[in-house]
Design a protein around this nucleic acid. Sequence first.
DNA 1: TATTGTTATACTCTATAACTATA
DNA 2: TATAGTTATAGAGTATAACAATA
Lengths: 177, 177
Amino acid sequence: MAEQAQYEQYEELARQLGAVGIVKRGMGRILPPDCPAGSAGVLALLGRHGDMRMSRLAELLSVDLSVTSRHVAHLAARGWLERLPDPADKRSRILRLTPAGVNLLDELYRRTTHLLAERLSDWSDDEVGQLIRLMTRLRASFGECRSTANRHPAPLGPGSQPDPGPVAKTTRTPAST
Amino acid sequence: MAEQAQYEQYEELARQLGAVGIVKRGMGRILPPDCPAGSAGVLALLGRHGDMRMSRLAELLSVDLSVTSRHVAHLAARGWLERLPDPADKRSRILRLTPAGVNLLDELYRRTTHLLAERLSDWSDDEVGQLIRLMTRLRASFGECRSTANRHPAPLGPGSQPDPGPVAKTTRTPAST
DNA sequence: TATTGTTATACTCTATAACTATA
DNA sequence: TATAGTTATAGAGTATAACAATA
């Protein structure tokens, strides 16, 4: 493909990525009170992968550990999950859904699928599958390297070539020492 | 397809939608200072569709007019766009990119396509095209009806059937009167 | 009276940094 | 010294409501 055409394709992709916010906000509106989208994401991952540590959850969410901690605290305060001590490492905590959490997750599952079934009524199963496959791959293409992007982007500069910058391997705030 | 399998597919789709945040944050990191993602979106739409009114822009962004107003004010304060009077309606304002705004947009375009070319180096053009097509359609399936969802979702309730609720046609906060 | 756009306020999500307690 | 997790703070994005100017 001609380079020019490919670049236009990338531009269009960027535009559509921004538009996904519309869909996400639409899904957010059907969530019950006290369970915002971030919390729902935690519940979904615990339901899918089972008990895990904070750090693993943060990795699956691709979000800083501090953010994960807040979501988890929110859920724990409402009795939807427990933070059990890890016998192997006293610094660590094992996250586990409570029965109430499982019920809530089930309810979220019902509402979500109901909404999608309504909105995507004219989609074929194959198309939905394609979209899932491509989005999963997109996430993989981006998620593997966090912070390869400029941390301090150049103000403007004409022929600016975004140089790779340092690569970080973790979801973790770098230690200040 | 069996209903059960289809529902699992919807569940997976919901999960992958959440994961798009990773990609969007990755793209946000290459933006120049003083031009956050929201502003970049405004620039992109003005570049693509040309001069327009606030209300049209809000509609294209699928975001409340108040939000649009803030983004636009941010860009106008930095000289990237002008708010011209509309000869046909003195309440309205016509938005137009300044030369500086066009330059900035060009720079954003370069950075974005560069990043995508790097990350999607192992994607075929056809795959990228497919993803764009499906995401565009997804947006259409959701964007057409804002607020069909529950505005005040039921707390929990077992067999809750999310009833459609009132349909709003605009991006507008309803008048309080 | 209805519509266009602005502003004030509040809430969610996120990242950074500083801190604790373990390892 | 390094790691797991918590908390405080700040920034971006959004929605709601109240308001001014015009239609």
